[in-house]
């Protein structure tokens, strides 16, 4: 059962769930940082002078903020899609948390993330149509198979771009904007409300994750971000728009996969794609066997500092988000019959 919401309800619920998610994550993260430091759950940040220890993972605090906001939203609007998005997010978090605690083989994350796609299929929160810019394609059976691929791919895509301070959270903040516009236009306002806790939770966490990071997300954080982004694009009929906004990250994981030729953990790669100079600037490896990654492509024209690379990744995310907005405009024009071929 779902209620039709008035614009005033949408605004009020939107502000409420955004504020709850933001405030919980913003005020709980310092406590988590203290706790993780006390327990010695830290990793070395190799890109900085003195190689400081940074606590990890931030996934649990992100999960708490999002789960509380989404449960509240469920009681306000009673949309079962919230449950499927929430279950997908929780399963992805658990998969990532296992990897945070114990280093698993490269195949573990993509394989285990297939499980995260199951709640969307079982609850039936997906549609039977895939929005392909010019029209919708009716593919009821193929679409289910597609969902089983989308969640692991997007989860791992966000995981693979989290190589520098604040990149994963910053990237999600930028790319969530076209996605939320798209789910409002092609899905419904309930999906917009479901996405707000992720956007505002990411904004809150970015304050601690940005350069110089006070906490790292860990796999639990990145898989949670990626899987929730993917599930929102599925229940909001915005899969292709979501993919276009993510193009730099998709390119990164695709480049990595196509050069390494198999699914491996980054730690298992013998030839590093980039190396650190004595002044802590990064330089692209000239070794042909080194994996091609987005960062290696950015550095192909010469060395850069960590901060300079982060800015460039965000510029690319803004560029792909602009392309996503253009795609929304094209799809909307075709949908309304303003353009036809």
């Amino acid at each position: 059962m779902t209620y039709l919401l008035s614009p005033l309800d949408i605004a009020f619920y939107g502000i409420l769930v955004s504020a709850i998610s933001f405030l919980i994550i913003f005020f709980m993260t310092p406590y988590l940082i203290k706790y993780l430091n006390k327990k010695g759950r830290v990793v070395v940040d190799y890109h900085k002078p003195g190689k400081p220890n940074v606590p990890r993972p931030a996934g649990p605090v992100l999960l708490i903020g999002i789960v509380i906001s989404e449960i509240l939203l469920y009681f306000l609007i009673l949309d079962v899609k919230i449950i499927s998005v929430l279950l997908t997010t929780i399963i992805a978090f658990i998969v990532g948390y296992i990897d945070d605690m114990k280093t698993m083989p490269g195949w573990f994350k993509p394989a285990a993330l297939i499980l995260a796609a199951v709640p969307i299929i079982i609850i039936g929160s997906h549609g039977n149509y895939l929005g392909l810019i010019f029209d919708n394609a009716f593919i009821p059976i193929l679409y289910i198979l597609l969902i089983l691929f989308i969640i692991p791919i997007v989860g791992n895509t966000i995981n693979s771009i989290d190589v520098f301070n604040g990149v994963a959270t910053g990237f999600i903040i930028i790319t969530m904007i076209p996605l939320l516009v798209s789910v409002t236009v092609f899905g419904n306002t309930n999906v917009l409300l479901m996405g707000l806790p992720l956007l505002f939770g990411s904004i809150a966490l970015y304050q601690y994750h940005k350069f110089p990071s006070k906490i790292f997300l860990g796999d639990s954080g990145t898989l949670l971000l990626g899987s929730m982004y993917a599930s929102l694009s599925i229940v909001g009929n915005s899969e292709i728009i979501g993919l276009i906004a993510l193009l730099p990250a998709v390119m990164n994981s695709f480049l990595f996969l196509s050069s390494v030729k198999k699914i491996v953990e980054h730690r298992e790669v013998k030839t590093r794609p980039v190396t650190i100079c004595s002044d802590f600037r990064l330089v692209a490896s000239k070794d042909k066997s080194a994996p091609a990654t987005l960062v290696r492509l950015i550095l192909a024209k010469g060395p850069l500092s960590e901060q300079e690379i982060i800015v460039r990744i965000f510029i690319l995310a803004i560029f792909s988000s602009i392309l996503a907005f253009i795609s929304i405009a094209i799809q909307y024009s075709f949908m309304m019959g303003k353009i036809s071929l």
Partner: peptide, 28 residues
């Protein structure tokens, strides 16, 4: 510095549009 990467992303976007066009208007 980023011009090449902008072009690469732009070409990827065009390719997605072309594939979408084929799926909707030719294969469909």
């Amino acid at each position: 510095r980023l011009f090449g990467l902008f072009m690469l992303i732009f070409i990827m976007w065009i390719m997605i549009l072309v594939v979408s066009y084929f799926l909707i208007f030719i294969i469909g």
